[in-house]
């Protein structure tokens, strides 16, 4: 991916956020009637929105004027994408199905398995099971018992 394209996409998104944020301040009062000079809840956000939009425009111009554009090193992008896809599934199941410890075991085991170069190695699978189980015990002790968190 090209750094210039990514920058422009993000800056346009940021600019859009700035506009939406500005429009949202319409429902907030900028000044209060209580005393002169007392700024309402919308005053500071409106100021920020204007600054953000101005800076975004400036940054878009700077990006467009850039002569060089680097290629972004995506490295191990398949693993990143797999993690990004698996995480919401894990969270969704945790929130709506429950069984936190079982799900977390599967999720952690799955991630470690996925990240290995040699997935067929029996030794790796055994280490993975031991590691995942140990982490789950640690989570249970620290969060479940000591902090009394109910998952």
């Amino acid at each position: 991916m090209n750094s210039k394209v990514l920058s422009l996409v993000l800056l346009l998104g940021t600019g859009l956020v700035g506009v939406i944020y500005y429009l949202s301040t319409n429902s907030l009062k900028s000044l209060t009637s209580a005393s002169p000079g007392e700024m309402g809840a919308g005053y500071f956000p409106r100021l920020l929105a204007v600054i953000l939009i101005a800076l975004t425009i400036l940054s878009i111009i700077q990006t467009l004027l850039e002569k060089e554009s680097e290629k972004i090193d995506l490295g191990n992008w398949k693993m990143v994408v797999a993690t990004i896809i698996l995480t919401p599934i894990y969270i969704f199941l945790w929130v709506y199905v429950g069984y936190f410890y079982i799900l977390t075991f599967i999720f952690l085991f799955g991630l470690i398995y996925l990240y290995q170069e040699d997935r067929k190695s029996k030794k790796m699978l055994i280490i993975n099971v031991i590691t995942t189980s140990s982490v789950l015990v640690a989570i249970y002790v620290f969060f479940g018992v000591l902090l009394e968190i109910t998952f």
């Binding site: 993690t83 977390t104 999720f107 952690l108 991630l111 470690i112 990240y115 280490i127 993975n128 590691t131 982490v135 989570i139």
Partner: peptide, 8 residues
Amino acid sequence: FLMPIVYV
């Protein structure tokens, strides 16, 4: 091994 643990 480390990153999945830290992530979770």
